[in-house]
Simulated scan of single mutants.
Amino acid sequence: MPEGDTVYLAGKRLHAALAGQLLVRGELRHPRLAEENLAGRTVLGVRSVGKHMLTRFDDGRSLHSHFRMDGSWHLYRPGMAWRRPAYEARAVLATAERVAVGFALHDLELLPTDAEDRVVGHLGPDLLDPEWDDAHAAEALRRFTARRDHELGLVLLEQRVMAGVGNLYKAEVCFLLGLSPWTLVRDVPDPARAVALSRELLLRNKDRPEQSTTGELGRGRQHWVFERGRQRCFRCGTRIAVGEQGDGVYARIAYWCPRCQPGPSPAPLHGAAARTARSRR
């Protein structure tokens, strides 16, 4: 699932390409929206909220989209070949100079702009909100500490607590805190640092496609533990462990260093079990 910085960057690029422009093509290839045609509408702007995207039009409506596991928005020049199959396209918004294509967008909805809270109002503070201030930080901290009996890794992923963290940043924040993802929130020594680190890492990467938490961009050096199962920890040399956290469809692969991140943890997964878990991340 894309991280909040990925969605932010997509929204930034879409806004630059579409804002203030008249749509010459506006197809929504979704069963509920197949009869809608946005051609002739002017795009007022595009913004992200956590992992949600809102594209606003001059008729007082907004197009809400969510990337889920495999969705994405691509930008092209007219006539360019698409990088994903046409049958995966769920939205095509074209101006005279740019073509925005939304692929595999399972969640797609047109709604009044003044009713956007219906789809994003449940979220916690957006970690990449341009207007983030002490009040946002305090609210995120309040929601975080209220989950005192829940596992740290799961709470970091909970968008109702704070919006934007995905599995990559969950793994990296836990590492930088020096805590197992299975540590209960009530046992986190500095909850405010967990919020601050989550925002810091997203901010660090919001304007580029590469996501680095180590400060390095070289291949294999970008992350402390994420997707480094069985490799050596950069800090202590211990092999990174791989496990699964959460239940059922909410289960996600977890990475941690058993030495740098003390605390409760399950038995690490190995071999075929680890590969199966990674395929469900």
Rank of each mutant, 00 (worst) to 15 (best):
L63P: 00
H64M: 02
H64E: 01
R68G: 05
R68F: 14
M69P: 00
M69A: 05
D70A: 15
S72R: 02
W73A: 12
W73Q: 11
L75N: 03
P78S: 10
M80L: 03
A81N: 06
A81E: 11
A81I: 07
A81Y: 01
R83A: 09
P85V: 10
A86W: 07
Y87H: 08
E88K: 10
A89C: 10
A91P: 15
V92L: 14
L93I: 06
A94K: 09
E97H: 02
R98A: 07
R98V: 12
A100Y: 06
V101L: 12
A104W: 15
L105I: 11
H106V: 15
D107C: 08
L108V: 08
E109C: 06
E109D: 13
L110R: 13
T113E: 15
D114H: 11
D114S: 06
D114Y: 02
A115R: 13
E116F: 15
E116M: 14
R118Y: 06
R118S: 11
V119P: 11
G121T: 12
H122N: 13
L123F: 09
L123Y: 05
G124M: 15
P125A: 13
L127S: 06
L127V: 03
L128E: 05
L128G: 04
D129E: 13
E131L: 14
E131T: 12
E131W: 02
W132H: 13
W132S: 08
A137V: 05
A138Q: 13
A138W: 05
A138M: 03
A138T: 06
E139Y: 03
E139K: 14
A140F: 07
L141V: 12
R142N: 12
R142L: 10
F144T: 04
D149W: 04
D149A: 10
E151W: 04
E151R: 07
L152D: 00
G153A: 11
L154A: 02
L154D: 00
L156I: 01
E158R: 15
M162N: 01
A163K: 06
V165L: 14
V165Y: 04
V165P: 14
V165W: 05
G166W: 05
N167L: 03
N167D: 00
A171R: 09
E172R: 09
V173R: 03
C174T: 08
C174A: 07
F175V: 01
F175C: 03
F175T: 00
L177R: 09
G178Y: 08
L179H: 10
S180E: 00
P181R: 04
P181T: 07
P181D: 12
W182L: 15
W182A: 11
T183Q: 04
L184H: 08
L184Y: 10
V188C: 06
D190E: 09
A192L: 09
A196W: 07
A196K: 03
L197K: 09
L197Y: 08
R199T: 13
